[in-house]
Nucleic acid binder design. Structure first.
Length: 485
RNA sequence: GCAGUUAUAGUACAGUCUGGUUAGUACUCGUGCUUGCCAAGUACGUGACCCGGGUUCAAAUCCCGGUAACUGCACCA
């Protein structure tokens, strides 16, 4: 299904919708999750915890969203997370100063250069607006971080532009108190904030968005000593270094040198296995190796995990080998020690990061799962049962003759164990269709026979097949069917 | 941020050009009846002109300004 169909479903069925929509000054780039969206998100994160955090023995933290100025001085975000921009005084178009100068005058000025340098180059080369030939204003820095003022003095602090900085600054304490041993994965789920110039396409480019980030701290001298590698050596991944993605096993990726070491290959493998279990079609995925110009300022090697959707390739996860960039920066700035012992060796750990965009992942799951079943004239959201916001609909065939009471009784017995949805009203077919659209894998219907022999029918979402089971079996059937893999 | 397009119920659309009665339709949603396993029928009901200003006796409709969404460009650590 395409973006429009997913959007319609999201609005009609409570997956997500614009923030503050009743007010006309609502800003672009902010969206909220409704009940169905929260259900899906929570279950997605539970799967993430199972498949990555627990599988690899990582620890999870929950840090502050507002962080002090020093953090971002050290991380480089105050210096580098800003683009030099110039604005045309005539038509108001905004351009990147470095790129415009490179394009027109063929002069390369690094983006981190002094602003004077850009102004000088623009003046010397008489560079004008490519659109209207107007003159440019002087160069300014546009920083994508939101600044906030703390306390009555409004002291300078920032909303985090990525969740991982808490992981870096917390690393010394966590390693000491939680009996850390390299390699050590530390994870965090939470919101990040970026003042995007042009937010677009609902969940796909937000100003306030969810990330699930993992930072794996490792000994850079032991990147090929990964025992767990055998678990994923035959897992198939798709890697793109040139024009087209190539399908290969993790072992082949390692041996061909496509992926630099066992350590990175292992995480690309378990990440792919995770996404396969979300129901995203991983044959439409790729790890795209980024060139030097595309990489973030802190990354040494970078792979973007991208998935093909109806609106093109979508970046869901950034995998960056950040080396010791972050820990040494924070060590220098804070004067704290970040080295740790790895057996007898004292090392400043390197970091491999798996930075997942949750909102984009949820969109992709919805797009890949939503099907138009033309034969039965219905939309079906074929979510994996363990990701569905509603596990089971509990329906009475009709309200009268005591069926309602019997249905209520069944609902009462299972509503704390499963995400169950009770519905008595309207035609039975309509109620099935509604459940199909929010991805409920099962519907249990109470009919007249139920009153005689204590059996109900269970309907499966995808096949629409029904079977009769004893009420006493409902628990165990559901337990097995909606369990995480 | 630039350009173009658009903005009417939960959703999709009509009406706007040519200002004028109670803003219409479909689906959805709620209640009743009916039926009794896949969006049926039937009756009733809830629900909307993006925001602000201007023109006018009168503005959903015309004008100006904002905001948002879509498309393209630019941007995307």
């Amino acid at each position: 299904m395409n973006y429009e169909e997913v959007m319609k479903l999201a609005l009609e069925r409570g997956f997500y919708f614009p923030s503050c929509e009743v007010y006309s000054d609502a800003n672009a780039g902010f969206w909220e999750y409704g009940p169905s969206g929260v259900g899906l998100k929570n279950k997605f994160l539970e799967l993430w915890r199972r498949e990555l955090i627990r599988r690899d023995g990582m620890m999870e933290i929950d840090g502050s969203q507002i962080m002090s100025k020093s953090v971002f001085e050290a991380s480089g975000h105050l210096g580098n997370f800003a683009d030099p921009i110039i604005k045309c005084t005539k038509c108001n178009s905004t351009f990147r100063a470095d790129r415009t100068i490179a394009e027109i005058a063929n002069i390369e000025i690094p983006e981190s250069a002094d602003l004077d340098e850009f102004d000088y180059a623009i003046k010397e080369n008489k560079i004008q607006c490519p659109k209207c030939k107007g003159d440019f204003s002087s160069t300014k820095k546009f920083n994508m971080m939101f600044k906030v003022g703390i306390g009555p003095q409004e002291e300078e602090a920032y909303l985090r532009p990525e969740t991982c900085q808490s992981i870096f600054v917390d690393f010394p304490r966590l390693f000491k108190t939680m009996r850390g041993k390299l390699p050590l994965g530390i994870a965090q789920v939470g919101k990040s904030f970026r003042n995007e110039i042009a937010p677009r396409q609902s969940l796909l480019r937000l100003r306030e968005f969810y990330q699930a980030e993992i930072e794996v701290f490792c000994n850079p001298n032991r990147l090929n000593e990964v025992e767990k590698f055998t678990e994923i050596e035959n897992t198939i991944i798709r890697v793109q270094t040139d024009a087209e993605p190539v399908t290969m096993t993790c072992k082949e990726a390692l041996e061909s040198g496509t992926v630099p070491n066992k350590f990175v290959a292992y995480y690309l493998g378990i990440l792919t296995e995770f996404y396969e279990k979300t129901g995203i079609d991983v044959t439409k995925s790729r790890f795209r190796k980024l060139g030097d110009k595309e990489k973030a300022f802190y990354a040494e090697v970078a792979f973007d995990f991208e998935v093909e959707t109806t609106i093109g390739w979508l970046e869901l996860v950034a995998c960056n080998y950040r080396s010791d960039y972050d820990l040494s920066s924070h060590a220098n700035k804070s004067k704290e020690k970040f080295e740790v012992m790895d057996n007898d060796e004292k090392v400043l750990p390197h970091v491999f990061e798996i930075s997942m965009g949750i909102d984009r992942s949820l969109y992709t799951i919805l797009e890949h799962s939503l099907k138009n079943d033309e034969e039965h004239e219905r939309m079906v959201l074929s979510l994996k049962p363990y990701l569905s916001p509603v596990h089971v609909g509990i329906l009475s065939l009709v309200k009268k003759d005591g069926l309602k009471e019997k249905t209520d009784e069944i609902f009462l017995n299972i509503k704390r164990k499963f995400d169950a949805f009770l519905d008595h009203s309207g035609a039975i077919g309509r109620r099935y269709r509604r459940l199909d659209e929010i991805g409920a894998p099962f519907a249990i219907t109470v009919d007249h026979q139920t009153l005689e022999d204590n059996t109900v029918t269970i309907r499966k979402r995808d096949s629409m097949e029904q079977s009769r089971v004893d009420i006493s079996k409902i628990d165990s059937i559901l337990l097995e069917s909606v369990a995480f893999p």
